[in-house]
Computed example of a mutant assay.
Amino acid sequence: MVTLAEVARHAGVSASTVSYVLSGKRTISSRTRERVERSIRELGYHPNAGARALASSRSNIIALMMPLRTEMYVPVMVEIAVAVATTAREHGYDVLLLTGQEGPQGVRRVVGSGLADAMILMDVELDDERLPLVRESSRPAVLIGLPADPEGLTCVDLDFAATGRLVVEHLAELGHREIAVVGEAAAVYERRTGFAERTMDGVRERAGQLGVRVLHRPCEGSYESMAGTLARIVDERPGTTGLVVQNEAAIGPLLSLLRQQGRAVPEDISVAAICPEQVATQQSVALTSVAIPAHEMGRRAVELVTAKMTGAGNGNGNGSGHANGAGNGRAGTDDETRVELLAPRLTVRASTGQAPTGTAR
Protein backbone atom coordinates (compact mmCIF):
# COMPACT_ATOMS: atom_id res chain seq x y z
CA MET A 1 0.00 0.00 0.00
CA VAL A 2 1.34 3.43 -0.99
CA THR A 3 2.00 5.72 1.96
CA LEU A 4 1.72 9.47 2.33
CA ALA A 5 5.51 9.67 2.74
CA GLU A 6 6.01 7.93 -0.61
CA VAL A 7 3.69 10.43 -2.28
CA ALA A 8 5.69 13.27 -0.73
CA ARG A 9 9.00 11.85 -2.03
CA HIS A 10 7.53 11.31 -5.50
CA ALA A 11 6.21 14.89 -5.64
CA GLY A 12 9.36 16.40 -4.09
CA VAL A 13 7.50 18.01 -1.20
CA SER A 14 7.14 17.45 2.52
CA ALA A 15 4.65 15.03 4.01
CA SER A 16 2.85 17.94 5.66
CA THR A 17 2.34 19.58 2.25
CA VAL A 18 0.68 16.42 0.97
CA SER A 19 -1.50 16.39 4.08
CA TYR A 20 -2.52 20.02 3.52
CA VAL A 21 -3.42 19.28 -0.11
CA LEU A 22 -5.64 16.40 1.03
CA SER A 23 -7.31 18.24 3.89
CA GLY A 24 -7.55 21.70 2.34
CA LYS A 25 -6.59 23.23 5.69
CA ARG A 26 -3.97 25.52 4.22
CA THR A 27 -3.57 27.36 0.94
CA ILE A 28 -1.14 25.59 -1.38
CA SER A 29 0.10 27.08 -4.64
CA SER A 30 -1.64 25.70 -7.71
CA ARG A 31 1.67 24.41 -9.12
CA THR A 32 2.48 22.45 -5.96
CA ARG A 33 -1.09 21.16 -5.63
CA GLU A 34 -1.04 19.91 -9.22
CA ARG A 35 2.29 18.17 -8.61
CA VAL A 36 0.98 16.43 -5.49
CA GLU A 37 -2.30 15.44 -7.16
CA ARG A 38 -0.37 14.02 -10.12
CA SER A 39 1.76 11.91 -7.78
CA ILE A 40 -1.37 10.68 -5.98
CA ARG A 41 -2.86 9.57 -9.27
CA GLU A 42 0.31 7.98 -10.62
CA LEU A 43 1.03 6.06 -7.42
CA GLY A 44 -2.59 5.11 -6.80
CA TYR A 45 -2.57 6.53 -3.29
CA HIS A 46 -5.79 6.17 -1.26
CA PRO A 47 -5.75 7.98 2.09
CA ASN A 48 -7.18 6.13 5.05
CA ALA A 49 -10.76 7.36 5.33
CA GLY A 50 -10.90 7.10 9.11
CA ALA A 51 -7.64 8.92 9.66
CA ARG A 52 -8.56 11.62 7.17
CA ALA A 53 -11.94 12.13 8.84
CA LEU A 54 -10.31 12.49 12.26
CA ALA A 55 -7.74 14.92 10.95
CA SER A 56 -10.18 17.11 9.07
CA SER A 57 -13.35 16.70 11.17
CA ARG A 58 -14.98 15.57 7.94
CA SER A 59 -16.34 12.17 6.93
CA ASN A 60 -15.97 12.64 3.16
CA ILE A 61 -19.42 11.08 2.83
CA ILE A 62 -22.51 12.44 1.09
CA ALA A 63 -25.87 11.17 2.36
CA LEU A 64 -28.33 10.39 -0.43
CA MET A 65 -31.92 10.31 0.83
CA MET A 66 -33.80 8.15 -1.69
CA PRO A 67 -37.09 6.92 -0.16
CA LEU A 68 -38.16 3.72 -1.92
CA ARG A 69 -41.92 3.67 -2.43
CA THR A 70 -43.95 0.99 -4.17
CA GLU A 71 -45.68 3.55 -6.40
CA MET A 72 -42.42 4.99 -7.76
CA TYR A 73 -40.50 3.65 -10.77
CA VAL A 74 -37.40 2.34 -9.02
CA PRO A 75 -35.10 1.93 -12.09
CA VAL A 76 -35.04 5.71 -12.66
CA MET A 77 -34.25 6.33 -8.99
CA VAL A 78 -31.48 3.73 -9.09
CA GLU A 79 -30.00 5.34 -12.23
CA ILE A 80 -29.90 8.68 -10.41
CA ALA A 81 -28.32 7.02 -7.37
CA VAL A 82 -25.62 5.36 -9.50
CA ALA A 83 -24.80 8.71 -11.10
CA VAL A 84 -24.56 10.28 -7.64
CA ALA A 85 -22.25 7.52 -6.39
CA THR A 86 -19.90 7.50 -9.39
CA THR A 87 -19.65 11.29 -9.54
CA ALA A 88 -19.08 11.48 -5.79
CA ARG A 89 -16.14 9.08 -6.09
CA GLU A 90 -14.64 11.30 -8.80
CA HIS A 91 -14.71 14.12 -6.24
CA GLY A 92 -13.26 11.96 -3.43
CA TYR A 93 -16.52 11.24 -1.60
CA ASP A 94 -18.42 8.09 -0.73
CA VAL A 95 -22.21 7.88 -0.59
CA LEU A 96 -24.40 6.83 2.33
CA LEU A 97 -27.71 5.62 0.85
CA LEU A 98 -30.83 6.13 2.98
CA THR A 99 -33.88 4.40 1.48
CA GLY A 100 -36.34 4.65 4.38
CA GLN A 101 -39.40 6.87 4.28
CA GLU A 102 -38.28 8.79 7.36
CA GLY A 103 -39.14 12.34 6.36
CA PRO A 104 -37.79 15.01 8.77
CA GLN A 105 -36.47 12.31 11.12
CA GLY A 106 -34.09 11.15 8.40
CA VAL A 107 -32.66 14.66 8.06
CA ARG A 108 -32.26 14.89 11.84
CA ARG A 109 -30.43 11.57 11.84
CA VAL A 110 -27.96 12.68 9.18
CA VAL A 111 -27.32 16.07 10.76
CA GLY A 112 -27.13 14.78 14.32
CA SER A 113 -24.89 11.78 13.63
CA GLY A 114 -22.16 13.68 11.83
CA LEU A 115 -21.78 10.70 9.50
CA ALA A 116 -22.11 12.81 6.36
CA ASP A 117 -20.70 16.16 5.29
CA ALA A 118 -23.63 16.94 2.98
CA MET A 119 -27.05 15.72 1.84
CA ILE A 120 -28.78 15.10 -1.48
CA LEU A 121 -32.55 14.68 -1.23
CA MET A 122 -34.73 12.87 -3.77
CA ASP A 123 -38.50 12.33 -4.09
CA VAL A 124 -39.18 15.99 -3.35
CA GLU A 125 -42.77 17.01 -2.62
CA LEU A 126 -44.17 20.49 -3.27
CA ASP A 127 -44.61 21.03 0.49
CA ASP A 128 -41.85 18.70 1.63
CA GLU A 129 -41.69 18.35 5.43
CA ARG A 130 -37.92 17.90 5.30
CA LEU A 131 -37.21 21.36 3.94
CA PRO A 132 -37.47 23.47 7.13
CA LEU A 133 -34.73 21.30 8.67
CA VAL A 134 -32.63 21.52 5.52
CA ARG A 135 -32.87 25.33 5.59
CA GLU A 136 -31.95 25.47 9.28
CA SER A 137 -29.01 23.09 8.99
CA SER A 138 -25.53 24.35 8.25
CA ARG A 139 -24.88 21.11 6.36
CA PRO A 140 -24.75 21.64 2.56
CA ALA A 141 -27.72 20.11 0.77
CA VAL A 142 -29.05 19.79 -2.77
CA LEU A 143 -32.50 18.67 -3.88
CA ILE A 144 -33.11 16.52 -6.94
CA GLY A 145 -36.56 17.95 -7.45
CA LEU A 146 -38.28 21.28 -7.07
CA PRO A 147 -40.59 22.21 -4.17
CA ALA A 148 -43.29 24.87 -4.33
CA ASP A 149 -40.99 27.34 -2.57
CA PRO A 150 -37.28 26.88 -3.39
CA GLU A 151 -36.21 29.96 -1.41
CA GLY A 152 -32.86 29.32 0.29
CA LEU A 153 -32.41 25.95 -1.42
CA THR A 154 -30.30 24.46 -4.19
CA CYS A 155 -32.30 22.34 -6.62
CA VAL A 156 -31.72 20.47 -9.87
CA ASP A 157 -34.45 18.79 -11.89
CA LEU A 158 -35.93 18.25 -15.32
CA ASP A 159 -38.23 21.14 -16.17
CA PHE A 160 -41.39 19.07 -15.85
CA ALA A 161 -43.74 22.00 -16.47
CA ALA A 162 -41.98 22.65 -19.79
CA THR A 163 -42.15 18.90 -20.46
CA GLY A 164 -45.93 18.94 -20.07
CA ARG A 165 -46.22 21.91 -22.39
CA LEU A 166 -43.96 20.27 -24.97
CA VAL A 167 -45.93 17.03 -25.32
CA VAL A 168 -49.23 18.95 -25.62
CA GLU A 169 -47.74 21.20 -28.32
CA HIS A 170 -46.54 18.15 -30.26
CA LEU A 171 -49.93 16.45 -30.23
CA ALA A 172 -51.77 19.70 -30.98
CA GLU A 173 -49.58 20.31 -34.02
CA LEU A 174 -50.70 16.91 -35.29
CA GLY A 175 -54.33 17.96 -34.99
CA HIS A 176 -55.27 16.24 -31.73
CA ARG A 177 -57.90 18.14 -29.74
CA GLU A 178 -58.88 15.48 -27.19
CA ILE A 179 -55.94 14.29 -25.05
CA ALA A 180 -55.88 12.02 -22.02
CA VAL A 181 -52.98 11.81 -19.56
CA VAL A 182 -52.29 8.40 -18.00
CA GLY A 183 -50.55 9.52 -14.84
CA GLU A 184 -48.67 8.10 -11.90
CA ALA A 185 -50.36 6.18 -9.09
CA ALA A 186 -52.91 8.17 -7.09
CA ALA A 187 -50.60 8.19 -4.04
CA VAL A 188 -48.02 10.23 -5.99
CA TYR A 189 -50.55 13.05 -6.46
CA GLU A 190 -51.90 12.71 -2.93
CA ARG A 191 -48.37 13.39 -1.63
CA ARG A 192 -48.12 16.30 -4.07
CA THR A 193 -44.90 14.96 -5.51
CA GLY A 194 -43.23 17.78 -7.39
CA PHE A 195 -42.47 16.23 -10.77
CA ALA A 196 -45.99 14.83 -11.27
CA GLU A 197 -47.76 18.02 -10.18
CA ARG A 198 -45.55 20.25 -12.32
CA THR A 199 -46.04 18.10 -15.41
CA MET A 200 -49.81 18.43 -15.11
CA ASP A 201 -49.47 22.19 -14.54
CA GLY A 202 -47.62 22.44 -17.85
CA VAL A 203 -50.09 20.17 -19.66
CA ARG A 204 -53.12 22.15 -18.50
CA GLU A 205 -51.51 25.52 -19.18
CA ARG A 206 -50.57 24.76 -22.78
CA ALA A 207 -53.75 22.84 -23.50
CA GLY A 208 -55.79 25.85 -22.41
CA GLN A 209 -53.78 28.10 -24.69
CA LEU A 210 -54.19 25.79 -27.68
CA GLY A 211 -57.84 24.87 -27.21
CA VAL A 212 -57.09 21.23 -26.38
CA ARG A 213 -59.30 19.31 -23.96
CA VAL A 214 -57.41 17.27 -21.36
CA LEU A 215 -58.52 14.38 -19.16
CA HIS A 216 -56.11 13.25 -16.43
CA ARG A 217 -56.42 9.82 -14.86
CA PRO A 218 -53.92 8.38 -12.33
CA CYS A 219 -53.02 4.71 -12.81
CA GLU A 220 -51.35 2.14 -10.55
CA GLY A 221 -49.47 0.71 -13.53
CA SER A 222 -50.58 -2.94 -13.43
CA TYR A 223 -52.36 -4.56 -16.36
CA GLU A 224 -55.65 -4.62 -14.45
CA SER A 225 -55.43 -0.98 -13.35
CA MET A 226 -54.45 0.13 -16.87
CA ALA A 227 -57.42 -1.75 -18.31
CA GLY A 228 -59.74 0.05 -15.91
CA THR A 229 -58.12 3.42 -16.58
CA LEU A 230 -58.35 3.02 -20.36
CA ALA A 231 -61.99 1.97 -20.09
CA ARG A 232 -62.75 5.10 -18.06
CA ILE A 233 -60.99 7.31 -20.61
CA VAL A 234 -62.93 5.79 -23.51
CA ASP A 235 -66.20 6.06 -21.58
CA GLU A 236 -65.69 9.66 -20.43
CA ARG A 237 -63.98 11.01 -23.57
CA PRO A 238 -64.75 8.73 -26.53
CA GLY A 239 -63.24 11.31 -28.89
CA THR A 240 -59.76 10.98 -27.36
CA THR A 241 -57.10 10.62 -30.08
CA GLY A 242 -53.91 11.32 -28.12
CA LEU A 243 -52.51 9.77 -24.95
CA VAL A 244 -49.69 11.11 -22.80
CA VAL A 245 -48.22 8.54 -20.40
CA GLN A 246 -46.24 9.55 -17.33
CA ASN A 247 -46.05 6.14 -15.73
CA GLU A 248 -43.38 3.74 -16.97
CA ALA A 249 -45.10 0.65 -15.56
CA ALA A 250 -48.31 1.42 -17.47
CA ILE A 251 -46.74 1.71 -20.93
CA GLY A 252 -46.50 -2.01 -21.76
CA PRO A 253 -50.05 -2.82 -20.56
CA LEU A 254 -51.45 0.21 -22.42
CA LEU A 255 -49.95 -0.77 -25.77
CA SER A 256 -51.08 -4.36 -25.27
CA LEU A 257 -54.65 -3.28 -24.48
CA LEU A 258 -54.83 -0.96 -27.50
CA ARG A 259 -53.61 -3.81 -29.69
CA GLN A 260 -56.26 -6.18 -28.27
CA GLN A 261 -58.96 -3.59 -28.92
CA GLY A 262 -57.87 -3.26 -32.55
CA ARG A 263 -56.76 0.36 -32.14
CA ALA A 264 -53.66 0.97 -34.23
CA VAL A 265 -50.86 3.25 -32.97
CA PRO A 266 -50.60 5.93 -34.32
CA GLU A 267 -53.27 5.58 -37.04
CA ASP A 268 -56.18 5.42 -34.56
CA ILE A 269 -54.57 6.89 -31.47
CA SER A 270 -51.22 8.57 -30.79
CA VAL A 271 -49.16 7.82 -27.69
CA ALA A 272 -46.41 10.03 -26.25
CA ALA A 273 -44.51 9.20 -23.07
CA ILE A 274 -42.39 10.86 -20.41
CA CYS A 275 -39.96 8.09 -19.56
CA PRO A 276 -36.35 6.85 -19.84
CA GLU A 277 -35.04 6.50 -23.38
CA GLN A 278 -34.65 2.73 -23.15
CA VAL A 279 -38.27 2.32 -22.05
CA ALA A 280 -39.48 4.35 -25.03
CA THR A 281 -37.40 2.50 -27.61
CA GLN A 282 -37.99 -1.07 -26.42
CA GLN A 283 -41.77 -1.14 -26.84
CA SER A 284 -43.72 -2.89 -29.61
CA VAL A 285 -44.08 0.58 -31.12
CA ALA A 286 -41.17 2.97 -30.56
CA LEU A 287 -42.61 5.80 -28.50
CA THR A 288 -42.37 9.51 -29.07
CA SER A 289 -41.01 10.63 -25.73
CA VAL A 290 -39.35 13.14 -23.47
CA ALA A 291 -36.45 11.37 -21.78
CA ILE A 292 -35.77 11.53 -18.05
CA PRO A 293 -32.15 12.80 -17.74
CA ALA A 294 -31.45 10.67 -14.66
CA HIS A 295 -27.68 10.57 -15.04
CA GLU A 296 -27.42 14.30 -15.64
CA MET A 297 -29.54 15.10 -12.59
CA GLY A 298 -27.45 12.87 -10.33
CA ARG A 299 -24.18 14.21 -11.67
CA ARG A 300 -25.20 17.85 -11.32
CA ALA A 301 -26.49 17.31 -7.79
CA VAL A 302 -23.05 16.08 -6.72
CA GLU A 303 -21.26 18.92 -8.51
CA LEU A 304 -23.50 21.47 -6.80
CA VAL A 305 -23.17 19.98 -3.32
CA THR A 306 -19.38 19.59 -3.57
CA ALA A 307 -19.16 23.20 -4.75
CA LYS A 308 -21.04 24.19 -1.61
CA MET A 309 -18.60 22.24 0.55
CA THR A 310 -15.53 23.73 -1.08
CA GLY A 311 -16.94 27.22 -1.45
CA ALA A 312 -16.58 27.01 -5.23
CA GLY A 313 -19.79 28.91 -5.88
CA ASN A 314 -21.25 28.00 -9.24
CA GLY A 315 -19.72 24.53 -9.48
CA ASN A 316 -18.57 23.70 -12.99
CA GLY A 317 -20.08 26.76 -14.57
CA ASN A 318 -22.96 25.07 -16.36
CA GLY A 319 -25.15 27.96 -15.31
CA SER A 320 -28.42 28.20 -13.43
CA GLY A 321 -31.75 29.88 -13.67
CA HIS A 322 -33.62 31.95 -11.16
CA ALA A 323 -36.04 30.11 -8.91
CA ASN A 324 -38.99 28.81 -10.98
CA GLY A 325 -37.12 29.48 -14.25
CA ALA A 326 -35.50 27.09 -16.67
CA GLY A 327 -31.73 26.75 -16.69
CA ASN A 328 -30.77 29.50 -19.09
CA GLY A 329 -27.06 29.94 -18.45
CA ARG A 330 -27.43 32.88 -16.08
CA ALA A 331 -26.48 32.67 -12.44
CA GLY A 332 -29.22 33.48 -9.97
CA THR A 333 -28.89 36.74 -8.10
CA ASP A 334 -29.67 35.15 -4.73
CA ASP A 335 -26.57 33.36 -3.44
CA GLU A 336 -28.70 31.17 -1.17
CA THR A 337 -31.18 30.10 -3.84
CA ARG A 338 -30.08 28.12 -6.89
CA VAL A 339 -32.42 26.30 -9.24
CA GLU A 340 -31.23 24.41 -12.31
CA LEU A 341 -34.01 23.09 -14.52
CA LEU A 342 -32.84 20.91 -17.38
CA ALA A 343 -34.61 21.71 -20.65
CA PRO A 344 -36.76 18.83 -21.97
CA ARG A 345 -36.06 17.30 -25.36
CA LEU A 346 -38.83 15.52 -27.25
CA THR A 347 -37.83 12.75 -29.66
CA VAL A 348 -40.46 11.94 -32.29
CA ARG A 349 -40.81 8.24 -33.08
CA ALA A 350 -43.42 5.92 -34.58
CA SER A 351 -46.13 6.27 -31.91
CA THR A 352 -47.47 9.72 -32.83
CA GLY A 353 -49.08 10.85 -36.07
CA GLN A 354 -51.81 13.02 -37.52
CA ALA A 355 -55.14 12.90 -35.72
CA PRO A 356 -57.66 10.63 -37.47
CA THR A 357 -59.66 12.34 -40.20
CA GLY A 358 -62.63 14.24 -38.86
CA THR A 359 -61.23 14.85 -35.36
CA ALA A 360 -59.04 17.91 -36.04
CA ARG A 361 -60.53 21.35 -36.32
Rank of each mutant, 00 (worst) to 15 (best):
A8H: 08
A11R: 02
V13W: 03
S23W: 10
K25N: 13
R26A: 13
R31E: 11
T32Q: 09
T32Y: 05
E34F: 04
E37T: 06
R38I: 02
R38P: 06
L43C: 13
P47Q: 07
R52M: 12
S56T: 15
S57H: 15
N60T: 12
I62D: 03
M65P: 03
T70K: 14
M72D: 07
V78F: 15
E79H: 15
I80E: 00
V82N: 01
V84H: 00
A85L: 02
T87F: 08
R89I: 09
D94F: 14
L96G: 14
L96R: 13
Q105V: 12
G106C: 11
R108F: 06
V111H: 02
V111G: 00
G112L: 03
L121R: 04
L121E: 02
L121T: 03
L126K: 12
E129C: 04
R130C: 03
P132F: 13
L133E: 00
E136H: 12
R139A: 11
I144L: 05
I144T: 01
E151M: 14
G164A: 10
R165A: 10
H170E: 05
H170M: 12
L174M: 09
G175V: 05
E178S: 13
M200R: 11
Q209W: 02
L210W: 04
G221Q: 06
Y223C: 12
G228M: 09
G228P: 02
R237K: 09
T240L: 13
G242M: 09
V244P: 09
E248I: 15
A249L: 14
I251C: 12
G252S: 08
A264L: 11
A264M: 11
V265M: 09
A272K: 07
P276Y: 13
V279I: 12
S284P: 06
A286K: 15
M297H: 00
G298Y: 05
R299D: 00
R300Y: 01
V305N: 11
K308C: 07
A312C: 07
G315D: 11
N318A: 15
N318H: 14
A323I: 03
N324Y: 13
R330A: 01
G332W: 01
T333W: 07
E336R: 14
E340T: 13
T352A: 03
T359Q: 05
T359M: 05
